[in-house]
Design a protein around this nucleic acid. Sequence first.
DNA 1: GTGAAAGCGCTAACAA
DNA 2: TTGTTAGCGCTTTCAC
Lengths: 338, 338
Amino acid sequence: MATIYDVAKEAGVSIATVSKVINETGRISDKTRQHVRSVMKRLDYQPSLVASALTKKRTNTIGLLLPDLGNLFFAEVARSVEDRAHEKGYNVVICSTDNDADKEEKYLAWLRQKRVDGIILATGMQSDKSVKSLLDARLPVALIARESRRLSVDTVRVDDFRGGYLAASHLVELGHTRIAVIAENLSVSSSRERVEGYKKALEEAGLAVDEALIRISSFDIEGGKEAARQLLELTEPPTAVFACNDLLAIGILQVCRAMGLAVPARLSVVGFDNTLIASLAEPPLTTIAQPIPELGREVVDLITQEIHGEKQAKQRVVLDPRLIRRGSTASAPEQAPR
Amino acid sequence: MATIYDVAKEAGVSIATVSKVINETGRISDKTRQHVRSVMKRLDYQPSLVASALTKKRTNTIGLLLPDLGNLFFAEVARSVEDRAHEKGYNVVICSTDNDADKEEKYLAWLRQKRVDGIILATGMQSDKSVKSLLDARLPVALIARESRRLSVDTVRVDDFRGGYLAASHLVELGHTRIAVIAENLSVSSSRERVEGYKKALEEAGLAVDEALIRISSFDIEGGKEAARQLLELTEPPTAVFACNDLLAIGILQVCRAMGLAVPARLSVVGFDNTLIASLAEPPLTTIAQPIPELGREVVDLITQEIHGEKQAKQRVVLDPRLIRRGSTASAPEQAPR
DNA sequence: GTGAAAGCGCTAACAA
DNA sequence: TTGTTAGCGCTTTCAC
């Protein structure tokens, strides 16, 4: 593989000159520029970004930590981050942590050793430890789709509270009075906020918040199934459920089908995220849409500003969620189901 | 950020010694090792992988090119590649090309400049140009879920021909005689093979291959919808369709629902890939499963062997697909639909 | 068991 | 406009 020395020698100039034409810095005569360019092409010269990273102290790489790339929501987030990063000249290294604190720590150390220019966190860990360690190391960090109340850090997220509020309000408007919610781990800020929004909506409607209707589960389909079964076995089961993500909602739909419970006639279901699967579900899922492309775009813009030292204060960008009405919600049945 | 010099000075040893304890090479007394380790910890020292990459000529990074991370199949592939790569000490840089030749070329040049140790291609481009350029540059390459007939290159894929054969045979066994196929771009090897397998199954069953029943479309839901509409408008429409991926199959289901055509009673549908959405579809999709975790594992093993120079010949690993019977297929109706 | 020194491929003063 | 040179932070002989 050709080096800058090879090019310089072949072109009969110094390496400084070659460097200048590569980076388009300094003043170079058109003639030499053309000449050097042609030599670079002829030798199939690829400037080493690792060497330049060593001197420039910049790798043009961003790390992205998320729970699971195989989860469509995070895959879509990753895609949006990737797109904006590429536009801005950055590569993205993705690490799936499975929400495992050890993996998270390991990957973070690794990314620091790789000298990534910044790290975007989409993992919903309970502790702020990782974030804090990055902040302490003065490495640019930004959170996407999560929030840290105690730490001052760039953040881009959807208004989860409002999302929960929208979901519950929609159900209230449809006349439901027994509305359940299935949340992921409440120590994850987004989940907590959604539940708070839900409570607010019920309260505003003069409905009592029944703790029996608030279920915590894992964040996958299985979690939704289990929680749904429990809810439907209640002596006074709900007529509507707000699931804190689409996967959970799908789980509910599956349980209903298995039990022969019609959705939305007997049970209304609202999801969250509006990933592709929401539109594919049967019935199509009414859900709260997160503006994923914008989230990715904003978080990259934030972190690149941070990297370039163009920012003074940390920012929190909160985007609005939207209610997408589809087929999984309807007016409350006259009688309670069963 | 502390450097090896800081650690050496603080520990009262030479940088060579520090380097040796970092890499666990050479012989170092237990005492100094402990001491140096403690200093490293105290200084929160993170060895620079960019500096070491410059000397070692190895970045421990693998590039992964795929069409779209937002497509669940590729997201799952990426996840499996990531997992195995991490196990082996490699990072993964992912680039979505949208099957755009310009992007592909751009990303490849970029990855070369980053000095990635190898590149895994999951993009189904028509030309072998990219692969050839990498081979020429003597950069380790491996293909996953695609094939290059003309080039000698490490490859891991599912037996697409057999997959198509399995799908069509299943439909034949159910008594279908008018079986359509919806394929992506036929210049993509996997797609072509699946169609060939389909043809083979029909021929073996003594059924004529009707070119009108072979449709080419884009590889997303919209493509499936459009192709489905065309097929169903035929004067002699099919009673079964084999879609070359799950997304296409979903498109078919949606069109059927819109038209009030019962699946599988009036039309049987088989997908390919067995991504999560296949199990979520209504009815759940009968599909051909690709062993994605194994694909990822194998391709990483192949490319790391190549990187370490442990291989003599290029290998082609072909894994078996499996038919997953679910609810979207049934016996052929007595009469042609409509 | 430890250290001195050359070199990896580039950038950025600073000179010329 | 072009070239010289000193790093960037490591690894790796080769002495000691």
